[in-house]
Simulated assay, not measured.
Amino acid sequence: MLTTIYMVRHAESPYTAGEERIRGLSPDGELKSRQVTELLQDEGIDMIVSSPYARAMLTVEGLAGKLNLPIETYEDLRERQFADDSYLIRDEQFMTQVQNMFSDPEYALPGGESSKVCQQRAVPVMFELLEQHRGKKIVIGTHGNVMTLMMNYFDPDYGWDFFIETKKPDIYKMEFQGTRLTQVTRLWKD
């Protein structure tokens, strides 16, 4: 039985230190979240789940309203903890540090999550959805790092090179037979 997961990376969100959970979407992000709704409204979606972070929920909120579906939040779908709040990463160092995390699954900044730890918390949500909602079409509102690490669990070709090519927002349709990934199709068009 085919189960379909639509990974929806959140739309553009202006960064504000200390506001990871509550920061919303930029005006461009709001506009593109409406395009997410347009792209997915006729897919036959059965269920919408999301990270509890506002930017992820706001990206799929219009779709939920259009389809009259609730958004179920899962704490374990939150974005990767890059470092402790007291550890400052300069903007020019950020992507290099993320690349280090993808290159070495055990690498983590002080107080942060390694790729391995982040993957170990997020992937069980995927298995829960695949096992409890077989044959359904499920949207997951998520973040770039978490999305890439979940996809990487099922196919190691999804790593750093994939991550840096993703957009905000982005949509990947993942088809599963049981818990085996059989196909991935990018639906977002720039």
Score class of each variant (00 low, 15 high):
F162P: 01
T4N: 07
K116C: 05
Q119C: 14
G135K: 05
F94I: 04
N145M: 14
G178A: 13
T185L: 11
I140W: 06
Y15C: 03
E72F: 09
H133Q: 13
S103V: 00
G178K: 13
S26T: 15
K189M: 06
T37S: 07
A17Y: 11
T3M: 08
E79D: 14
D170Y: 09
L31F: 09
R180Y: 03
V146K: 06
L88F: 12
G18Y: 11
I5D: 06
L77F: 12
V146E: 07
G159V: 02
L25N: 04
L181D: 12
Y158D: 07
P169K: 04
G24L: 01
Y107H: 13
K189Q: 14
G29Y: 02
L2I: 15
N100V: 00
E72N: 08
T3P: 06
I45D: 01
I164L: 08
F94N: 07
P110F: 09
Q177E: 15
F102V: 07
R23P: 06
L77C: 12
D46T: 05
L129H: 09
I45V: 15
E113I: 00
S103Q: 13
V36R: 02
F127S: 10
G111T: 09
N100S: 13
D76A: 12
Y172W: 14
A64G: 13
L149I: 04
R180C: 10
R121D: 12
E131H: 14
R80S: 12
L187F: 03
Y15S: 04
K116M: 09
L77W: 06
M151R: 04
V139E: 01
T148N: 05
I171A: 05
Q81K: 14
V49I: 12
T96A: 15
Y53N: 01
S86I: 02
V49S: 05
S115Q: 05
M95L: 15
D155M: 11
W160P: 08
M151P: 07
K116E: 10
